[in-house]
Amino acid sequence: MFSAILTLGVMGLLAALALGFAARKFAVEVDPRELALLEVMPGANCGACGFPGCGGFAKALLEGKAMVTDCSPGGADTVERIAHILGVEAIAAEPEVAVVLCQGDNLRARDKYIYQGLEDCVAAQSLAQGPKACPGGCLGLGTCARICPFDAIEMTAEGLAVISREKCTGCRKCVSACPRKVIAMTPLRTTVHVLCNSHDKGALVRKYCELGCIACHLCVKASPGAYKVENSLAQVDYDSHCDATGGIGKCPTKCIRDFILGYPEGSSFSPPVVPVQAEENP
């Protein structure tokens, strides 16, 4: 009994001494902040910051090559913590979500040719600018849904990409993957969007899509300041902070949608419960 305790004790002591000696003798300096930074990062390694994974971002931050606000998936919380570790003042970026600015699924938007081939929007787009007659509409082949690191994009049965406002972290991967640039980054507080991406004239839009913006300006008249029409396409003016809900009912083609009242048809997502608009400054 006694010899057992003694033997193990001596062995443990020897090992401890050896390790302690080695720790001093062979110490390698690691910036403790790097480890601390890794702790607070989301760890999705999505690459939204433009660096190879969270580790690369941490290194870049310490070398001053990256901005504190570059980690959009982490949101304001992460940005604040990163800034705290680095000891800098952080201006938290306004939280953003990606929105597919189109409702033209296979039932509502016409195709100009029958596409047979690779189920990929980029591949389809390279064939005569894609099968959709609309030059800006969602092709519905799911490239964005496959690339999304947070599983926030679903494809409806009729071929329309819909992005969940809850799951989207604003990493912008889908924005750069979409060959038709139909996905836009919008402030999270705004739930009203003009879901059309066609800059064609109204008469032409009517020919190929039931739910396309025809630039009739009715929304602009209904909610002054909340909308702007540029290049034959109405858009919510996201910088104006005006209430845009007034324009929804006025739209003759029903292409303005308030996501509080529901996602586009065919989506399985349930509408966001908490209206974020309530936190508006007085």
Binding site: Q116, G117, L118, D120, V122, A123, S126
Partner: peptide
């Protein structure tokens, strides 16, 4: 659509 896939990869 193999050749299309390869073309896609090339792109």
């Amino acid at each position: 659509p193999l050749v299309q896939s390869v073309r896609h990869a090339k792109g």
